[in-house]
Write a protein that binds this DNA or RNA. Structure first.
Length: 970
RNA sequence: GGGCGUGUAGCUCAGCGGGAGAGCACUUCGUUGACAUCGAAGGGGUCCCUGGUUCAAUCCCAGGCACGCCCA
């Protein structure tokens, strides 16, 4: 016998153990011979991560699909694993060192540090895999992969080399987002732009050689509002410290105010006066004439917009900061460096990037300062010199003009510090070229995006894709397979040996001094002194992009690769459209020449019950593991599934989880009831042989539900599938079916009882199977226990049970039970309204019943008596005096309640019902009287409306009669 | 500024051209042998506003208002 309540806490681990022992989720488990493959690769969670609600939702949906297809007999693989999360992992481990007072990573060196990360991973990494198991995720855990595994690393090297040789990877000096905490470049997508309080300073850049011009301002009508002679141009900036690296001042070509001075030089008003640099005033479309003064300083090495302007106009890019975003302290004294910069300007032409980058234009007094301290000092110096634009304050004093304004500032999503746009040498992938086939694949429908509206976002991003910076200045990750020769020539090969032979070949062939150098090294057996490996590692997303095929065995000719690639669906949050989807698409098509997945399903974000994004700082994070502890994994899974409507955020309120835990308990108890009545383990039941109406009815509903669930899952409508099951299990199976079964179980018809036992067992089995993908633990446990009760063992686990396909349908039976439900509900409702005590029983007198109703009454007499608390059922030609009269179809059901009846109340109730019926008749008559409706509406609709009208007429007539009777009785 | 989306019961949300629905919450009643993690009955809506299309609009279209998210 089942326990009185289901205890998730003890059942779940036991079931998990069974699944593991029986290898239930191994690739191909339960596959029918020659079965279609079905594969999902998990979007790899981060090795440092722990399960949050997003993962819980994501994994639940994947698991539902995978369990569903496995039960359908497909050859299923849910490939799992984790990515190595370069920055995050390095951060976690370094923090741990700091806490323990251990040496820093630089102190211990690269190799030792990497060893320590592996140690860390073995001890505390991958916590999330354990948590996914608690959720019931039916991945093939034996195939778990890690992006830093040897096989996957080999895939990374192969792809890198191949892309490089195809000209799709190159190295260059570009502006990138620099995280000064981690001292690495990071991706645009790892930068969070936030509004912050900032200042806008206004400074004067004096014109060179004391030049002056007429500065004229006009209003909208063209009237002159200001005319003065100026010997300067004023600019506005939020980042004064970058003035040191200015390469030009830009104005809009149409800006008449500055037209006279375009092409002239002005002086940067900072640094030692005798060495101030002169920079040109250029015309470019970038400055907005209506913003600030209309003139913009151009610092190409520290601002993305400026960078574009500088590149367009051949303005040199002077880098001011080092890896920590402190002002540079390398190079020669300021005076010498300025002279070099001047020389470059005077030479004209396109400046050599490396030569420019070597110039340190930070005045000696500012070298080594933090960027924010430098800002303060620069502002102070300019203001002291009187070159700040001034305004008058409330007391009439002249004060520097500084505006307080909110500015968009970039922050590192992990470090939280202000990101510095910085000119550095990096490796880039030609995303534009790679994106083209990825765009076509979606346009041509080879990959389908669900819900469809995300395709627009996908197109938009892919069409405007920027070069992908793939190098990171980290130690943890795939070191780039690029080696430099003594002259800086780069050799990109899959390993050092190959690179070396390529280098030798290259240098020997090219002759010259390098040839001699190489020959010398080789003669002295010191090949290790020839090449030096690039220190950078690859962006974690580079390896994640290969995930759909690298995990299946690529670059080897693996069987799994042939079977499961392309995979069927990628399930992920829409916030990861650019990370996983875009990159996996690009790499899948480049490497495999085939899309990585047929379908991409985007689910929503999980928010708190008020719709706010969950975040640690807000303190509104709900820990899925805590919910699992409290309510069980099944309850959480069901909640997430039923709330996962397409294109909607999931607002999670823990009370909902409690509600679905109750749902599980309900099913548990209904099964317990069945068991107590000898109904358990329905393997042998044949629906077509059922005779009892309630059996034929519940089988019809079961079939309907099975179809609904199947169709909904095939269409990724998880919420519809779950809702359909909820309705069936609670409102039909556990409610009416069980209630209607009671009189039969308690009665004395052995045949009926036997059929009911096997039918109920069957329906519970099938319902359990349908629920299995949603609530795997409880359904697995019920599956076992219901058989064990009869001393039997199931042939398969529930997770391998065949998915229900029920063709049975009997609409007649369905109509009959609907009628029965209506009769019982009507009586109950009337009793409650009349305040009839629950203990009081009354006879039921039926007037005007036709043959069908008479038959039904006889068949369900016991049920009606029990459920509606009726003493006996009689037929009569006229309703007894003083009865409550209920119209159900053609018949009038009367409850002679004697003095219990409140005649006035009953009269009122009937006239309300009558009014409603008349309203309905009027509405339908009006509609059918409309010639245009009859002429234009589909015939089926018109017919249906006519039938409705006929029914409404009948109801109205019966109610009119009933009302008349009650009036007489008063 | 560009894009996407959302306004339906107190709350969270389904529905989406022909009868306004669910869960939770609320009110009243209930210890009948599956279940109080329950059962019975009930109250509660200008389906954001304004137009348009249509025989018919909560649903389609246009505009507006409000809110959310993403990208500049």
């Amino acid at each position: 016998m089942l326990d009185k309540t289901y205890d998730a806490g003890s059942v779940e681990p036991a079931i998990a153990k069974r699944w593991e022992e029986e290898d239930a989720f191994a690739a191909g488990a339960n596959a029918q011979t020659g079965a279609e493959p079905y594969c999902i690769v998990i979007p790899p969670p981060n090795v440092t991560g722990s399960l949050h609600m997003g993962h819980a939702l994501n994994s639940t949906l994947q698991d539902i699909l995978v369990r569903f297809e496995r039960m359908r007999g497909k050859n299923v693989l849910w490939q799992t694993g984790m990515d190595h999360a370069g920055i995050a992992t390095q951060m976690v481990v370094e923090r741990q060192f700091a806490e323990r007072g251990e040496p820093t990573r630089r102190e211990m060196g690269r190799e030792a540090f990497i060893d320590r990360i592996w140690e860390w991973k073995a001890q505390s990494g991958g916590h999330i895999a354990t948590q996914l198991k608690r959720l019931g995720a039916s991945c093939d855990w034996s195939r778990e992969r890690f992006t830093m595994d040897e096989g996957l690393s080999r895939a990374v090297r192969e792809v890198f080399v191949s892309l490089y040789k195809d000209g799709l990877i190159y190295r260059g000096k570009r502006l990138v987002n620099w995280d000064p905490t981690f001292e690495t470049a990071i991706s645009d997508l790892e930068v969070e732009n936030r509004e912050t309080d900032g200042h806008m300073w206004h400074f004067r850049y004096p014109l060179a050689d004391g030049e002056t011009y007429e500065y004229v301002e006009k209003d909208a009508e063209g009237n002159v509002t200001l005319r003065e002679t100026r010997d300067y141009i004023s600019i506005a900036t939020t980042r004064p410290e970058t003035m040191l690296g200015d390469g030009a001042v830009a104005v809009h070509p149409s800006d008449e105010r500055y037209a006279p001075i375009v092409g002239k030089l002005c002086e940067i008003p900072v640094g030692p006066k005798e060495h101030r640099r002169l920079i040109p005033i250029i015309a470019d479309a970038y400055p907005d004439p209506d913003f600030g003064s209309g003139a913009v300083k151009i610092t190409g090495a520290h601002d993305f917009n400026d960078y574009a302007v500088a590149v367009r106009n051949g303005i040199p890019l002077f880098r001011l900061m080092d890896e920590k975003a402190a002002l540079r302290s390398d190079g020669e004294p300021y005076a010498e460096e300025v002279a070099r910069a001047k020389a470059i300007r005077e030479e004209g032409g396109k400046p050599d990037a490396a030569r420019v980058d070597a110039i340190n234009l930070v005045p000696d007094e500012y070298r080594g300062l933090d960027r924010f301290e430098a800002r303060r000092r620069v502002v102070e110096a300019i203001t002291a010199e009187g070159l700040a634009v001034t305004t008058t304050d409330a007391e009439g004093n002249s004060v520097p003009f500084v505006e307080n304004r909110t500015i968009m500032q970039p922050f590192g999503d992990r470090s939280g510090v202000v990101i510095e746009p910085m000119l550095t040498d990096q490796w880039f992938a030609d995303a534009e070229t790679l994106a083209r086939p990825a765009l076509d694949a979606v346009r041509e429908g080879r990959t389908r995006i669900v819900p469809e509206n995300w395709t627009k976002t996908y197109y938009g991003w892919m069409e405007d894709i920027q070069p992908w910076c793939i190098s990171r200045q980290l130690w943890w990750g795939h070191q780039i397979p690029a080696w430099y020769g003594p002259d800086g020539h780069v050799f990109v090969e899959r390993d050092e040996e190959t690179a070396l032979s390529a280098a030798i070949q290259y240098y020997i062939a090219h002759g010259g001094p390098m040839k001699a150098f190489i020959e010398d090294k080789l003669e002295n057996f010191k090949p290790g002194e020839i090449l030096e490996r690039d220190e950078d590692v690859l962006d974690t997303w580079f390896s994640s992009a290969l995930w759909p095929f690298s995990t299946l065995g690529w670059p080897d000719d693996a069987r799994e690769l042939k079977t499961y690639y392309p995979t069927n669906v990628l399930v992920t949050g829409f916030d990861l459209i650019f990370f996983w989807v875009a990159r996996m698409m690009m790499m899948g098509l480049y490497v495999m020449d085939e899309v990585p997945f047929d379908t991409v399903y985007f689910h929503a974000l999980v928010r708190d019950k008020n719709g706010a994004k969950m975040s640690k700082s807000k303190g509104n994070v709900i820990d899925p593991v805590e919910l699992v502890d409290e309510y069980g994994a099944d309850a959480l899974r069901f909640t997430l599934a039923i709330m996962a409507a397409k294109g909607r955020d999931v607002k999670l309120d823990p009370s909902r989880v409690a509600g679905y835990r109750n749902f599980g308990t309900k099913l548990w108890n209904a099964t317990r009831f069945a068991q107590m009545n000898g109904a358990a383990g329905g393997d042998t039941f044949v629906p077509e042989k059922a005779k009892l109406t309630i059996d034929r009815w519940i089988l019809t509903e079961l079939g309907r539900t099975a179809r609904e669930v199947t169709e909904a899952l095939e269409d990724y409508r998880f919420n519809d599938a779950a809702a359909s099951l909820y309705r069936f299990v609670w409102n039909q199976l556990c409610d009416w079916y069980v209630e209607l079964a009671k009189p039969i179980f308690g009665g004395d018809e052995p045949y009926a009882k036997r059929e009911l036992q096997s039918c109920m067992a069957y329906v519970l089995d099938e319902a359990g199977k349908l629920l299995h993908p949603f609530m795997p633990f409880m359904t697995e446990e019920l599956w076992r226990q219901t058989a064990a009760e009869r001393g039997e063992t199931r042939e398969t686990l529930a997770c391998h049970a065949p998915w229900p396909e029920i063709a049975f349908a009997d609409e007649e039976a369905a109509a009959e039970i609907n009628w029965l439900v209506e009769v019982v509900s009507a009586i109950r409702s009337a009793r409650a309204e009349m305040n009839v005590p629950p203990s009081a029983k009354a006879p039921l007198v039926v007037v005007g019943a036709d043959a069908t109703t008479a038959e039904r009454l006889e068949r369900h007499e016991a049920a009606i008596m029990r459920l509606a608390r009726v003493e006996r059922i009689e037929k009569a030609d006229e309703p007894p005096r003083g009865s409550v009269q209920l119209v159900v179809e053609e018949a009038t059901m009367c409850l002679p309640l004697g003095e219990l009846i409140d005649l006035d109340g009953e009269a009122e109730r009937l006239s309300k019902a009558l009014a409603k019926a008349e309203q309905e008749v009027a509405r339908l008559e009006k509609k059918l009287a409309n010639e245009k409706f009859v002429a234009n509406a589909k015939p089926g609709i018109v017919e249906a409306e006519r039938e409705k009208l006929a029914e409404a007429h009948e109801t109205r007539d019966k109610l009119t009669l009933a009302e008349g009777r009650i009036r007489q009785a008063r």
